[in-house]
């Protein structure tokens, strides 16, 4: 960047503490992961679809879902990418991988980290398993990442 442009730039930061009241469903989901290393979903009483992460209302039936079911710690990768570009606000140092993962027994997908940064070793349809954090911090990252199996 030229010196001329650089002079016109003020570099600042926005640092603000927040707390998020996540609701009863997220509370149970995250607590089960941290305490019991269990991944829980909820099941629609009408269509039987199992949502992981859990939602209160089925998107197709508009039914309230209250039946909690445990799903597998293993799942199938539906899509992936390897992050190689670095920005200051990333959860890990690149390179690292993100996958869209459908856990065994679930009907929805969720996005999480995969501890494999070589794109050649990743493929759609590969099997992965959750690795839990030793010291949970009430975060979705209490599943630290998924590993290839």
């Amino acid at each position: 960047m030229s010196e001329e442009i650089e002079k016109k730039i003020y570099r600042g930061r926005i640092k603000v503490p927040y707390k998020h009241t996540a609701g009863a469903y997220v509370e149970r989901f995250i607590t089960e992961i941290g305490k019991n290393n269990k991944i829980m979903g909820v099941k629609c009483p009408k269509c039987g679809k199992v949502y992981v992460p859990p939602k209160m209302i089925c998107f197709t039936c508009f039914e309230k879902m209250e039946e909690w079911v445990e799903v597998g710690k293993q799942g199938t990768v539906k899509g992936f990418t390897v992050v190689t570009h670095s920005t200051p606000v990333m959860p890990l140092e690149p390179p690292y991988a993100y996958g869209i993962i459908t856990l065994d027994g679930a009907d929805t997908d969720f996005v999480h980290l995969i501890n494999e940064s070589d794109p050649k070793k990743l493929k759609i349809g590969m099997r992965v398993e959750a690795v839990f954090k030793e010291k949970p911090r009430k975060r979705i990252l209490d599943i630290e990442y998924f590993k290839a199996i």
């Binding site: 730039i9 600042g12 503490p17 009241t21 997220v26 606000v89």
Partner: peptide, 26 residues
């Protein structure tokens, strides 16, 4: 007790101050 997830944003930004402010600060 309500279940709360706590976090802190730390977002860097670059703000263009304009040529008059450049002279002011110089």
């Amino acid at each position: 007790k309500i279940f709360e997830i706590k976090w802190k944003t730390d977002l860097p930004y670059r703000y263009s101050i304009g040529k008059l402010a450049v002279k002011f600060f110089e």
